[in-house]
């Protein structure tokens, strides 16, 4: 609870400085409206159906992208993490693909899958699979051999090893990967909407609002909403993780 107040204190401080800077004339009000104005615009927008549609479009694309990323990266990570030769064989291609910025793939993706929501989902998936993939592989490599021996000495077969030792051990690592990917997927969805001119979504709203150059309060309101969505996603996942992996935090703390 105390940390919540502290977080809010930081946020309120940020808004106060922003408000002050605009009032004093440090930044031109035309380009950067004060937060009081941005927040009231935000409140207005949240009452308007088209804006809500945009928010839903973005959140939906994000959820689908994250779901697909998990469905691809977790099994792939388990496979690569448990089969050494496969890991070696794919190292070069993985290290080649991973550093490619998703934005650079926009033209290719638009050509291949078209300009609909598929484009932003594809790009978000491309960027979001890596943290999950690497965390899963890392988790499998980190299993304590003593623990494996213990399970084997308890009569656990190789196939059951995966479900009864590898998966529970890897779960918190995988979950951390998912949390990182969730943020990345949101960034990718909103930026693709903005850059590639999608027909809906928060990024698209920001793009359209900014086109005249006079609706900066709307642009910033869209940005604030994107930030809030990101915050809520991360906070929600953190809570879920803390509840599910209580043992892991405690073990981690004990090890510190």
């Amino acid at each position: 609870m105390r940390s919540l107040y502290r977080n809010l204190a930081g946020l309120i401080g940020f808004f106060l400085i922003w408000e002050g800077a605009v009032r004093v004339g440090l930044v031109p009000e035309l380009f950067v409206p004060p937060p009081s104005e941005v927040l009231s615009t935000t409140a207005q927008l949240l009452g308007q159906e088209p804006f809500i549609r945009d928010v839903i479009a973005t959140v939906l694309a994000w959820a689908i992208a994250l779901g697909i990323s998990i469905a691809i990266a977790v099994p792939a990570g388990l496979l690569l993490g448990s089969i050494a030769w496969l890991r070696t064989a794919t190292r070069a291609i993985v290290e080649f693909l991973r550093p490619i910025p998703s934005v650079a793939l926009i033209p290719l993706v638009l050509l291949v899958v078209g300009g609909g929501p598929e484009a932003k989902i594809t790009l978000a998936v491309y960027a979001a699979v890596w943290p999950i993939l690497f965390n899963t592989i890392y988790a499998l490599a980190e299993i304590d051999p003593v623990l494996m021996d213990t399970a084997r000495a308890c009569g656990t077969s190789r196939a059951r090893m995966l479900t009864s030792v590898a998966l529970p051990h890897a779960a918190p690592f995988v979950f951390t990967g998912i949390r990182m990917s969730a943020a990345i997927a949101l960034i990718l969805v909103v930026s693709t909407e903005y850059v590639a001119g999608a027909s809906s979504g928060l990024g698209n709203f920001i793009l359209e609002a900014s086109s005249g150059g006079t609706n900066m309060d709307q642009v910033l309101a869209g940005t604030v909403v994107a930030g809030v969505i990101g915050y809520l996603i991360n906070d929600g996942l953190e809570r879920v993780g803390r509840r599910m992996f209580r043992w892991n935090e405690a073990v981690g703390e004990a090890a510190k």
Partner: peptide, 21 residues
């Protein structure tokens, strides 16, 4: 292979108990 009716206790108790159970 490990027989069914055999049990092992290792020195490192902290590493041989499943922390999630």
């Amino acid at each position: 292979g490990v027989p069914d009716d055999l049990a092992v206790v290792f020195q490192d108790y902290s590493r041989s108990l499943f922390p999630w159970l």
